[in-house]
Design a protein around this nucleic acid. Structure first.
Length: 645
RNA sequence: GCCACCCUAGCUCAGCUGGUAGAGCAACGCAUUCGUAAUGCGUAGGCCGAGGGUUCGAGUCCCUUGGGUGGCUCCA
């Protein structure tokens, strides 16, 4: 007998050679029908794997991330089988499950499919799925495995096998298809009831640009047809929140071919939104002891040679600007730090002056690869809510705590509760590439970890993700389509103080090198507005909304009263307009609802006579009538509720 | 940059296998003066992203080019 421990801690006994599926059946037939795979001692395995020793077993269904993963990974096998049937010369490489489905990277040689061929492949997949072929995993010797793929002229699988140890290699068969695979499949292909191949993409073998480019086919699959339908509807829904769509609809920003790709144009409403955010940050920073500075948009090439950016990024950036003076070269600034270093150097500094916090909404230009550009989240010209803190090594932790507070204040004010904080530290093994003393790194790294813990941040620590010049703490937020974007960032820098030979006079009357902290709570105004737009689906918080109130006269007869109300509100700093169009009231309400205007004031005969307004809130409907004083108070209360938490 | 796809009126989109461009919304004009999500009628609006080619004829086919979209280390 073997003892099987289930996730709830219960232990059951079964005959040797029993399977996870048998365990499921012993619990209930209903469960057994749902089991897709199992985790045996933490490893994802087939539910049919015989259990010959005591083991911890977790039964996986569609509800488990790993269950989905087994399902999608198995679907990748079926995709390969279908491709093999239609393109006999295709060479398979890897086909894993991903967060939202699966893909397979395939070398098609000269006969790559186009997007139109995906339907054909889908149909073939469903044909194999209906055959309900079992996935059977079996061990194979390294020699036999190599032989198998050498005969098929598949250098990719050969390379993969060469890196595996003999004795731990397994193949998996299903129907007419055999694949090198470590396992973790659903029982048979019949579980797959719906498949959708989403797109084709180029992907380099092993992700390296120097290697051959393969064709990657992305897809999703489901155990029920209705689930696919829901999934596709969800994707459609997400598209409605896309900041590029909303940005156009709400008149926030635009792009122009003639201006150049990746260079956003902020329209009046977008500019109003952005300025309000900047104002918000300025106030918060002033309270936190930052001093605003202003620096030019260009800097001499020598500045970036000093900073090291020319060597590292020069070739891939906007190229230097020439002047009538022979040999004189300027760069569009790709970052504000070198300028701020020069501000630090503008006067001698004492330990008493530190920390020195220099803040600037600095516009920078970076020549991102054209394929990387994406709406407002990845652009070639953007404005950072940048600041550099120059401090003593013993002040790093405290400064970190203060910056974390600022970032959390921003997130809270804008209702971002679903973010991820990542601490990036040095790699544990190779520490040769990092600049700065070991001692300082130790100090800074523990300062970050402690500061994050002190502020109750749940962080993910990534070793080896630190920049060569210092460790960092990043805040990531997901967009409407589930893609992760980095917003706030806090980075320690030992490099620039060194290169610019920054110093301060210590208490001991000796020269010391300050530590520099880069930080941008928004990240960039562009990216932040993009993520914020998606986050609130275009319904910005009242205090940020470019237009807060619109007055709708029932008919032209009440235009004068409407104007009077609007003037009154505008004089109280409530951004108000009047819908002067000669349209029905129903029409005006509809249009302003669609423009996502937070409040509508409907005024007609009744209101004018009683000196009142009928209030309608976006998405909520009629709130009844009140006088303008009461309405002003309602607005001001709402705004202070949003900002003072 | 690379792979796939897309580009037709301000916006959203039709336009079959090539026969010389169409709708809705928006805009403008006229009428309507309206009570909580679309008043009616009319007018105007397009070098079908750009350039080249094939053809008697190209929005439609081919090539080049611009812009956009998705993807480009979530390991057998």
């Amino acid at each position: 007998m073997v003892k099987i421990t289930l996730p709830d801690g219960s232990v059951r006994e079964y005959p040797v050679g029993t399977t996870a599926m048998n365990v499921a059946e012993s619990i209930s037939q209903g469960l057994a029908r749902q089991v897709l795979a199992a985790k045996i001692n933490g490893e994802l395995k087939e539910a049919a794997t015989p259990l010959n020793h005591d083991a911890a077993v977790q039964l996986l269904t569609w509800q488990d991330a790993d269950g989905k993963s087994a399902f999608w990974h198995s679907s990748a096998h079926v995709l390969a089988e279908a491709v093999q049937a239609l393109y006999p010369h295709a060479l398979f490489t890897i086909g894993p499950a991903v967060e939202q489905g699966f893909y397979y990277d395939i070398d098609f040689g000269d006969s790559a499919p186009g997007a139109d061929d995906l339907t054909r492949i889908e149909e073939k997949m469903m044909e194999f799925a209906r055959q309900a072929n079992t996935f059977s995993l079996y061990p194979i010797s390294k020699a036999d495995a190599l032989d198998y793929y050498r005969k098929r002229n598949n250098p990719y699988k050969v390379e993969l096998i060469e890196n595996l140890a003999d004795g731990e290699i397994t193949f998996c068969d299903q129907g007419s298809f055999t694949d090198l695979c470590r396992g973790g499949h659903i029982p048979d292909t019949g579980y797959i009831k719906a498949v959708k191949l989403l797109n084709l993409a180029g992907a380099y073998w092993r992700g390296n640009e120097k290697n051959k480019q393969l064709v990657r086919i992305y897809g999703v699959s489901f155990p029920k047809q209705s689930m696919l339908k829901e999934h596709l509807e969800l994707l459609e829904e997400a598209k409605k929140r896309d900041h590029r769509k909303l940005g156009q609809e709400l008149g926030l920003f635009a792009f122009s071919q003639r201006v150049g790709k990746g260079l956003p144009l902020w329209l009046p409403k977008g500019a109003a939104l952005r300025e309000r955010l900047e104002q918000f940050m300025r106030t918060a920073q002033r309270k936190a002891g930052y001093q605003p500075v202003i620096t030019p948009h260009i800097g001499s090439k020598a500045l970036y040679e000093t900073s090291g950016h020319w060597d590292k990024y020069g070739a891939d950036s906007f190229q230097p600007i020439e002047t009538p003076e022979e040999g004189e070269l300027f760069m569009l600034k790709p970052m504000n730090c070198p300028h701020h270093c020069e501000i630090y150097k503008a006067e001698p500094r004492s330990y008493r002056d530190l920390p020195l916090r220099l803040a600037e909404f600095g516009t920078v230009y970076r020549y991102e690869q054209s394929g990387e550009l994406h709406g407002l989240t990845r652009v070639r010209g953007f404005t950072q809510d940048d600041a550099h803190i120059f401090c003593r090594p013993d002040q790093v932790k405290n400064e970190f705590v203060k910056v974390i507070d600022l970032v959390l204040y921003v997130f809270k004010s804008l209702n971002f509760s679903d973010y991820r904080a990542q601490v990036s530290l040095r790699s544990k093994e190779d520490r040769s590439k990092y600049i700065g003393s070991d001692e300082n790194w130790e100090k800074a790294e523990s300062a970050i970890v402690e500061a994050a813990a002190e502020r109750g941040l749940t962080t993910v620590v990534e070793y080896g993700e630190a920049a060569f010049y210092g460790p960092k703490l990043d805040f990531m937020v997901k967009d409407a389509l589930g893609r992760s974007w980095q917003l706030g960032t806090i980075q320690v820098d030992y490099n620039l103080p060194e290169r610019f030979e920054l110093e301060y006079t210590g208490q001991d009357n000796q020269k010391h090198r300050p530590v520099m902290i880069h930080r941008a709570p928004f990240g960039s105004m562009e990216r932040f507005v993009a993520v914020l737009t998606e986050h609130c689906g275009g319904n910005f918080p009242l205090w940020l909304s470019p237009e807060q109130v619109v007055v709708l006269p029932i008919s032209d007869k009440f235009l004068d009263y409407a104007e009077k109300v609007a003037d009154l509100l505008n004089n109280s700093d409530i951004r108000t307009l009047v819908d002067r169009r000669t349209e029905s009231i129903g029409r005006k309400i509809r249009d302003n609802e669609m423009r996502k205007l937070p409040f509508m004031l409907i005024v007609g005969e009744k209101e004018e006579a009683e000196e009142k307004v009928s209030v309608r809130e976006h998405g909520k409907g009629d709130l009844g009538s009140m006088n303008t004083q009461e309405f002003k108070q309602l607005i001001h209360e709402e705004i202070s509720r949003q900002l003072n938490h």
